[in-house]
Design a protein around this nucleic acid. Structure first.
Length: 435
RNA sequence: GUCCGGAUAGUGUAGUGGCCUAGCAUGGAGCCCUGUCGAGGCUCCGCCCCGGGUUCGAAUCCCGGUCCGGGCGCCA
């Protein structure tokens, strides 16, 4: 069976008039008008019209065409005909239609955009949902986004690493972990590469990054949380929190620019015109953030409170663009964030926010072994479980800083998508582990 | 977890006690049509989440369950 195409639909042009090409893809639509029949063939790059003139066509080809069902996979060999009346300025007059694999009917959902499907239906049938140009556009943009992230970080001198997802202990207190059976001992799915990327600072790699999955067993059930998410993490030695904030904002701007430049057809499919943010982002201290909240909200906050969903919204509306919140109370940030030497009640930690939600958090890290040991204890954790980590701090680890950025949140805010599940192919949430 | 809302052909929806033999769109089968591009016209096909209850009568009201959506909580 022959199934190799010579061209994608978008690579055929009216100038190729009378040339023979082979297109392969899915039967997107069938319009049978009597004396003339149109098939719309869809491939990854677009669509092409196949036109059958019933009087002149080979009856065998017509017979195959008549028997096609929507979403069947076909290879069409035909002659390109420049035709102003056809979408794209050309159509294909088939010489041969090969049915490579028929699709059953009825389809689990519509791929043409005529009838909407609910997110739940789309996720249950993700393989078919991805055939919809709009869904495919989201994941092509996701590809461009991650590719730009890698490119930017590499230009900045970062080295890509991979750290284990199966671990023996929690990275930090607070978040729940998924326990797994690892031979005859208990292990967990990692919630963050935090500890491991810090170990690489002791390892002298200076600047590292990782793009990988993180797992959180929290029972959250919102439009912006996942139990398996993708984290973009960096860690850099001989840098403080301000230094890595600059890297972060420049990365965001770079990613927006490259997506706007490279994902033009996908953005068009989604009807999105990207507004590229400008750096530097505004820097709010935690104190200023509290003040803005208290001026604009009925839910008043006191110093030491964490910023909840409503505060995030209120402050986001007041600022209206990406911004940082820095200098957080030491107590509400993890043990590994470095307190200011002169004001130990606040820490060199920051969050980077989109008006809609938090995208990233980072900090300068504690590099002094004894301080780290004490802070682990103070947060009610057992230092024994952290020995593999603490050990690296006894043999020369430079001052260092880093952040973690939620890839899905970056994408959903960029594309103004309401539900985080829309930007993950196979989302894992409180209620979904399949497909 | 909690509060609110929802569940009707394959998909998306209308219907809030009898007018429902459940409407519409899309889809499928078939017929007509040589320029469709969300084609059009005609015929046919296919649906009330599960279990109990109220009532002469339940898709519709009540109770329980399951599943889904949204808010909040939880959350580097």
């Amino acid at each position: 069976m022959e199934f190799r195409r010579t061209h994608y639909t978008s690579h055929v042009t009216p100038e190729m008039n009378s040339q023979t090409v082979k297109l392969a893809g899915w039967v997107h639509e069938i319009r049978d008008l009597g004396g003339i029949m149109f098939l719309v063939l869809r491939d990854r790059e677009g669509m092409a019209q196949i036109t059958l003139f019933k009087k002149t066509i080979d009856p065998a080809v017509l017979k195959t065409a008549k028997a096609l069902s929507r979403e069947s996979v076909v290879l069409v060999e035909g002659e390109v005909k420049a035709e102003a009346k056809a979408p794209g300025g050309y159509e294909l007059v088939p010489i041969k239609i090969e049915l490579l694999n028929p699709a059953k009917s009825p389809l689990p959902m519509d791929t043409t955009g005529k009838v909407d499907a609910e997110l739940d239906t789309r996720l249950d049938n993700r393989f078919m949902d991805v055939r919809r140009p709009k869904t495919q556009a989201v994941f092509r943009i996701r590809h461009h986004m991650l590719s730009a992230v890698r490119e930017f970080l590499e230009q900045e001198g970062f080295i890509e690493i991979n750290t284990p997802k199966v671990v023996a202990t929690a990275t930090e207190g607070g978040t729940a972990l998924f326990p797994i059976t690892y031979f005859d001992t208990e292990a967990f799915l990692n919630q963050s590469p935090q500890l491991f990327k810090q170990l690489m600072m002791s390892g002298g790699m200076d600047k590292v990054f990782e793009i990988g999955p993180i797992f959180r067993a929290e029972e959250h059930d919102t439009r912006r949380h996942l139990n398996e998410a993708t984290s973009i993490d960096i860690e850099a030695s001989f840098m403080d929190h301000e230094d890595v904030m600059v890297i972060l904002e420049n990365l965001i701007v770079y990613v927006y620019e490259k997506v706007a430049e490279r994902a033009v057809p996908s953005l068009k499919t989604l009807g999105i015109e990207l507004t590229i943010p400008t750096a530097p982002f505004r820097r709010l201290t935690y104190d200023e953030a509290i003040e803005i909240n208290n001026e604009n909200s009925k839910e008043l906050l006191e110093w030491g409170d964490d910023l909840g969903t409503s505060a995030e919204k209120v402050i986001g509306e007041a600022i209206g663009e990406h911004y940082f919140i820095k200098d957080w109370p030491t107590e509400i940030k993890p043990y590994y964030t470095q307190p200011y030497e002169d004001e130990p009640q606040i820490t060199k930690a920051f969050d980077m926010m989109h008006p809609r939600m938090e995208l990233s958090s980072g900090a300068q890290r504690v590099h002094d072994h004894d301080m780290l040991h004490k802070r682990i204890q103070d947060q009610g954790l057992n230092p024994d479980g952290f020995e593999f980590y603490l050990k690296a701090f006894r043999y020369g680890i430079p001052p260092h800083s880093g952040w973690g950025l939620g890839a899905e949140r970056l994408l959903m805010t960029m594309l103004d998508v309401d539900n985080i599940r829309d930007v993950v192919l196979f989302p894992r949430d409180r209620k979904r582990v399949s497909p």
